[in-house]
Design a protein around this nucleic acid. Structure first.
Lengths: 325, 325
DNA sequence: CCCGGACTATACAACGATGGAAACCGCCCC
DNA sequence: GGGGCGGTTTCCATCGTTGTATAGTCCGGG
């Protein structure tokens, strides 16, 4: 009974005599033998682990995304290793440069601080899939919804319900804030299409996309000369923060001010009022990201093809914060 | 220039001539050499990866916990691999049995479906730290807050603000639902201490701890013969769901019904009304869990000591849902 | 009765890194 | 001038697994 025979049994190699197989299996059970993954990995070059890099798990959007990706990866018997970048450019750069401390087969990366050419991979050939909004035709596979169109949908929804002074919360003007810029572009486009003036005083900048930023931004808008009658927030957290400020100050939502968010996180379905939002097809994003990695890890053709850009659908979900109850 | 010399340079071995070191380093940079983690791991027996097993990342509590643990692990240069059990007993059993597909140095496990002796480790000697509530003196290191006391604190807070009919949402009667049972025990103890009768009609069972369960449970309580004037929900998600139902039906919170939750997730700080809750020291839990693993992975004494039980502090955070605004 | 082929088990060499021992070097000191 | 010595580098074995090549076994057919 040689080592190789054990290997054959463990791997279900066909030509093992049933009797031998049984004996080996028995020994395995008795001794509690576990194959050593490190050695297997060394031999095969595959670890069965993919990394997911997100800014922070504390944000419901990323937490949900992570959960979906873990599930999608499970179907391929992959495990997911989490890298939290906290949105630090340095960390993100290290990821892209492949300065990882651990052996992974692929990387799914939702960048926050990096954009454009900075995401080009140097030297490291482990496949990478980029998530989230970004200039098209980048250096790696990319999965995203049509961000600008989605933002326009949200804004149009507000306009169509008769709102005239539609504010935006979530603008950011540093160059890597592609998400914010695309959503702002969609907002402006929809305003123009609706024949509404674009009042710069109605665009509120934020540091980051958390509830507190939304609350503060809303306060600034309300303190301005002519407060808005509707707000498009660039994500649901901002929107929940904004709603909080509005209710705190005695405004009615959507009576006085309608609010719409972006992401469709679960919080918005149970908040009061429930939150209108743009719902990206998260499940599909997760599946596609994992599928793309799988293709790159596969044998032939697809593995070396040019970067692909996949667009995922989104839909508008109108709830109480714009419709009333 | 041998392989070993490169290894020595990479690992910062002292006795390498500066000139040699420089040449090697230069070659490394030029060729983009990356040490192979699989090989290193095979030799050293350490992967630098710990697994975190939680029921689901979609729950803000676990998402936050995961984020904290990733950060705590980072300080030891460990990476965290996520296992989502979805609360399936089978999956949890596999974890405990060590039927892992990947090489990890340790496991931080927040069980949902398993309890007590089922958690005893068979054969697998990779260290495990259990999180969350459970019978004491179990088979592995364990970090948790005093769950019963915390539940009593929450209930007492309601009683002290003059509420007489205090309901509980979150009871579960299957044997592994230790968390629910401990919180229920705390609730009952506090009622008794406050001299309030324990009306079984005021205890609402739930399937799981999500917003929808809280909303449904609240509806059942309101439809009952004598609705409560306060509710202690066994976690914040249940509480947010309950608040949603109350507001939807025109009740004032806390005017008609006061609500308190458990976990102190971020949602509760920006909901309307803001949510009173029990805040466990999550950061400390994460740190301790990682520290315990580190001890077990260390060389000598501590590695083989008896399982330890560490208790983490919690505090009551009173917000609008019990105090009013 | 021998041989080919199918089936089964073993031997050996990798995968890439590292600990330890051995080899090499220049130099000081007796 | 040779032995010893510190500092530096190389050699060898090893971690556990698996692909390839090889050896062994058994059977049926020519």
């Amino acid at each position: 009974m040689s080592i190789k025979t054990v290997s054959n049994v463990v791997n279900g190699y066909v030509h093992v005599a049933p009797e031998t197989r049984a004996r080996v299996q028995q020994a395995i059970d008795a001794l509690g033998y576990k194959p050593n993954m490190a050695a297997r990995q060394l031999r095969s070059g595959r670890s069965g682990v993919i990394a997911l890099a997100v800014p922070e798990l504390q944000s419901p959007y990323f937490a949900e995304l992570a959960g979906r990706i873990v599930h999608a990866a499970e179907r391929r018997s992959w495990t997911v290793l989490i890298d939290q970048t906290d949105g630090h450019a340095e960390r993100e750069r290290n990821l892209v440069a492949g300065l990882r401390r651990h052996a992974i087969d692929g990387l799914i990366f939702s960048p926050l601080a990096l954009a454009g050419e900075e995401l080009a991979r140097g030297g490291d050939e482990t496949p990478m899939v980029l998530l989230g909004e970004r200039v098209w035709h980048g250096p790696a596979d990319h999965v995203a919804i049509d961000n600008t169109a989605a933002a326009a949908d949200a804004t149009r929804h507000l306009a169509e319900s008769g709102r005239r002074r539609i504010a935006a919360i979530g603008a950011q003007d540093f160059p890597s804030a592609v998400t914010a810029q695309q959503r702002l572009a969609g907002y402006r486009a929809a305003l123009e299409q609706a024949g509404l003036p674009a009042d710069p005083a109605l665009v509120a900048e934020v540091e980051s996309f958390h509830r507190a930023d939304g609350a503060a931004a809303m306060a600034r808008l309300l303190d301005g000369p002519r407060p808005p009658d509707a707000v498009f927030c660039f994500n649901d957290l901002l929107a929940l923060g904004a709603v909080r400020t509005l209710l705190e100050r005695g405004y009615s939502v959507p009576g006085d001010v309608a609010v719409i968010g972006f992401d469709d996180i679960e919080d918005g379905r149970f908040s009061t009022p429930t939150l209108s939002t743009i719902a990206p097809d998260l499940g599909r994003i997760a599946e596609l990201a994992v599928d793309l990695l799988a293709e790159r890890l596969g044998e032939g053709e697809a593995a070396t093809a040019a970067p692909r850009e996949l667009r995922v659908s989104h839909r508008l979900v109108a709830r109480e914060s714009t419709l009333g109850s």
